[in-house]
Simulated assay, not measured.
Amino acid sequence: MPVRRRPRFKKESAKTFGFFLIFAAVVWVLVQFSKTYTQLIEIPVNYINAPLDKSISEERPDHVDLQLQDNGFSIYYFKIFNPKLDIDLSQARETNNKLVYTLQNHLSEIEEQLRIDFEKSLIVQEEIVVPFQFKKEKMIKVVPQIEVSYAVGFSAENPVELRPDSVKVSGPEKIIDSIETVKTQAIKLNKVNQNLNGSVKIDTSGLGALSFYENSVKYFQKVEKFTEGSAEIPVEVINVPENLNLAYFPKSVIVYYQVNLKQFESISAADFRVVCNYKDVKKGDDYMIAQIVEKPDFINNVRLNERRIQFVIKR
C-alpha cells in the first residue's frame, strides 16, 4: 500500500501570510491613530526672566493641564517628547508676594511654543501663581584676574583698573552675607605695548543662587615706555649694641629698578635707603639681610644685586 505524504506548507505561502498580517496591523494602527481623541495632558513649565530682586519659591506650579482634542499622532507626540512651556515672569503682575501670569493673555505665544491650535485645545488653568520672596541686594567688589606680560621696554605704574569696580548682586540673605568679593574670569595678555582697554566677564561659577545686575566689567591700564635704572646705595646697619664692634661687607649695594622714561632723570641715589637690622640676625648666622625701606613710589621691579651682607664681630 503506498504511503501518503503530508502536504508541506510552502514558504511562499508563509511570506504572503506574514505580509498581509503586517499590512493589516499597520492599517489598523493608522486608522486608530487618525481618529480624534480628547485627552488631558500635563505640560511641564520652565520659568524664565524672573525679576532680579525676587527669589521664586520652590513650591511653584511645575505644569499646566492641556485638554487636547486631536488625532492620536498629536497626542502621542506630547506624551513621547514631553515639550515644555516657557513662562516669562517679566510679564507677570505682582500681587501679595506672588507673581501672577495670566495664561489667557498669552495664548498666541503658547500656540507657537507648543504647536497647537486652541480651536481644538484648552488650557485648563486661567493663570499661574508663583510665590516669591524679596532678595537681599548688595554691592560686591570685583577683583581682576588679569595677568599682564609687557613687551620689552614697556610697563605700567598702576595696576589694572576695573570700571565698575563693584557690581550689584541679589540673592538669599545667607549667601549674600557670606560674600565680600567676586573675581573676573582669568585672562592673560602677552607682549603688551599699548594702553589696555577691554571687557572681561565676571566669574559666576558656583554662584548660581545669586543674580548679577552686570555680567561683565571694563578693564583699563595706562601702559608707557619704561627703562631700567640703577643706583649704588650705602648699607645702613641699625640696632647694633653700643659695646659691639661690627664690621660688614659689602658697604654698599646696587639697586636696580624700572621707571617711566619721562621720570628717569628725576631719580637719584638719595631717593633710596637700604637697611640691615641687627636684631633680625639669628644665632649662629654670619650675615644680615638688606632691605629697601625707602624708594620713589613711581618705580617698580625694584631689586638688589646683593641681599646678604656678611659681618664679623671684632674683639
Score class of each variant (00 low, 15 high):
Asp70Arg: 14
Asp70Thr: 12
Asn71His: 14
Gly72Asn: 06
Gly72Val: 12
Gly72Ile: 12
Gly72Phe: 12
Phe73Lys: 09
Ser74His: 05
Ile75Trp: 12
Ile75Leu: 12
Ile75Glu: 08
Tyr76Ile: 11
Tyr77Ser: 04
Tyr77Ala: 07
Tyr77Asn: 10
Tyr77Cys: 04
Phe78Met: 06
Phe78Thr: 03
Phe78Asn: 03
Lys79Arg: 13
Lys79Asp: 06
Lys79Val: 02
Ile80Ala: 10
Ile80Gly: 04
Phe81Gly: 01
Phe81Asp: 07
Phe81Thr: 08
Phe81Tyr: 13
Phe81Met: 07
Phe81Ser: 04
Asn82Ser: 13
Asn82Pro: 02
Pro83Thr: 11
Pro83Arg: 10
Lys84Gln: 14
Lys84Leu: 10
Lys84Val: 13
Leu85Thr: 15
Leu85Arg: 15
Asp86Val: 09
Ile87Tyr: 11
Ile87His: 10
Asp88Cys: 11
Leu89Glu: 06
Leu89Asp: 07
Ser90Asp: 08
Gln91Glu: 13
Ala92Asp: 10
Ala92Met: 07
Glu94Tyr: 04
Glu94Ser: 12
Glu94Pro: 00
Glu94Asn: 09
Thr95Phe: 09
Thr95Glu: 11
Asn96Thr: 10
Asn96Pro: 00
Asn97Trp: 00
Leu99Phe: 05
Leu99Tyr: 02
Leu99Asn: 01
Val100Asp: 03
Val100Lys: 01
Tyr101Ser: 01
Tyr101Lys: 00
Tyr101Thr: 01
Leu103Cys: 03
Gln104Ala: 09
Gln104Cys: 00
Gln104Asn: 13
Asn105Tyr: 09
His106Arg: 12
His106Glu: 14
His106Gly: 07
Leu107Asp: 01
Ser108Gly: 01
Ser108Pro: 02
Glu109Val: 11
Ile110Met: 07
Glu111Trp: 09
Glu112Asp: 14
Glu112Ala: 15
Leu114Phe: 08
Leu114Asp: 08
Arg115Tyr: 04
Arg115Cys: 01
Arg115Trp: 01
Ile116Gly: 06
Asp117Lys: 07
Phe118Gln: 05
Phe118Lys: 06
Phe118Leu: 13
Phe118Ala: 06
Glu119Trp: 01
Glu119Thr: 10
Glu119Met: 03
Lys120Phe: 14
Lys120Asn: 15
Lys120Arg: 15
Ser121Trp: 12
Ser121Thr: 14
Leu122Ile: 11
Glu127Lys: 13
Glu127Pro: 00
Ile128Thr: 02
Val130Trp: 03
Val130Gln: 03
Val130His: 03
Pro131His: 07
Pro131Trp: 08
Pro131Met: 08
Pro131Tyr: 06
Gln133Gly: 04
Gln133Ala: 09
Gln133Pro: 00
Gln133Phe: 03
Lys135Pro: 00
Lys135Cys: 14
Lys135Asn: 15
Lys135Gly: 12
